[in-house]
Design a binder for these strands. Structure first.
Lengths: 210, 210
DNA sequence: ATTATATTTTGAACATCATTTATTGTTTGA
DNA sequence: TCAAACAATAAATGATGTTCAAAATATAAT
């Protein structure tokens, strides 16, 4: 009776092993420059095997993005329901979470934000697309709940909370993508953290009732 | 003596013709799905000819982005030096410009924002990279000048103007990319315009001295 | 234990492009 | 009229994502 379960477990392990190899290669080369052959090599498997676990290159990439999105959501859930801090403090904790995730693995995060592109979404299987939709929606709900709390507490101006959550997420992705590419264009040092700090300061100030 | 000039002109025309074909195809298919063969077909040329005018696919794509960036900068220059409106009004005009550009050709704009990715930048010739750096820098300078004016006028809080300009640009790109991809994920209608309106409202409020 | 069946993996074949190059065609200037 | 310069082409090349028939391995049945 345990055989089937063990096989299931092994299948899941193999999947994780491929994803870990993919994470390394995508992180080092970016989506286009990474090759399935190199990922297979890193995972000590043949290229064909990758297609038994992922429909195609885009779906393998998307699975990594889903993982990091889930991680972000998990981190947010650790503090959104806390009663001892108000919405403004939660916004600051959110900012810290965002910065931590960026610093932990900048490339995977940047790749996640790039995924937000129509051409990629078209190549996903319905299941993975569904999973991505679900995960994004969870992340956005968590952010929305902070905003709503701020409005309820009379700290934030009463705008549409979903739009506000979108703007928070958009600012996060926009700052990471733009400041990082500016660094590459101008051989600057990495200002992502500082710019995120300032952006959140401005956003928070913009949210508040005067 | 005019022959050389005519040839120069024809060369420039052919370049434009290729870019126009590329614009159509990239706009319809996105970067990865668009093929050089299809672009060549659209331009009524053979694939090889494209390489006499552009080093590679990425450089052709980048040329389009430079064009739209130049257009944005041009639009900004029309009002940044006006004396009859203050910095806050200029911010609103900036927002309108951003919305107009999005509505004129969403895909080319989205592709521009996607370009802001390290892996693409590595494949550009030094000249085109230089041109892109220059153009981005021009656009950012224009935005920075609005922010600086606001600080000088005592309307905006005195933060680092360059960081503030980065945040404006990052918010623009972030909102366009995220809200558009959310639309694709959830089959929603296009909320980019409304979200940009709200984002600017919040940002402007966040900039202001209370 | 042996054989049959099912599962998993392989690696070579295939198809699709981006890019290069040898060739052809065209314009210019003498 | 012709040679040199220029421009464009079509076919070849190479890289790489993806598929598939065969091999290897594990499980189940007799």
């Amino acid at each position: 009776m345990g055989i089937h379960e063990r096989k299931q477990r092994e299948k899941e392990q193999r999947r994780k092993q491929i994803m870990e190899a993919a994470r390394k290669v995508f992180s080092a080369k970016g989506f286009n420059k990474a090759t399935m052959e190199e990922i297979a090599g890193e995972a000590e498997l043949s290229p064909g095997t990758l297609y038994l676990y992922f429909k195609n290159k885009e779906e393998l990439h998307t699975s990594l993005s889903i993982d990091i999105l889930e991680y972000i959501t998990e981190q947010m859930k650790k503090f959104i329901d806390r009663q001892d801090i108000n919405a403004e403090e939660k916004m600051n904790t959110l900012k810290d979470t965002f910065i931590n995730v960026y610093e932990y693995d900048p490339m995977v995060l940047i790749n996640l934000f790039h995924l937000q592109s129509g051409e990629t979404l078209k190549n996903l299987s319905p299941e993975v697309l569904e999973e991505l939709t679900e995960t994004s929606s969870d992340a956005l709900s968590a952010i929305t709940s902070i905003v709503s709390e701020g409005i309820d507490q009379g700290i934030f101006a009463a705008k549409h909370p979903v739009a506000m959550a979108d703007i928070i997420w958009a600012t996060y992705s926009g700052v990471v993508l733009w400041v990082d590419s500016k660094r590459l264009l101008n051989n600057e040092k990495d200002f992502v953290k500082q710019t995120l700090e300032t952006a959140f300061e401005i956003m928070l100030n913009g949210f508040k009732i005067k």
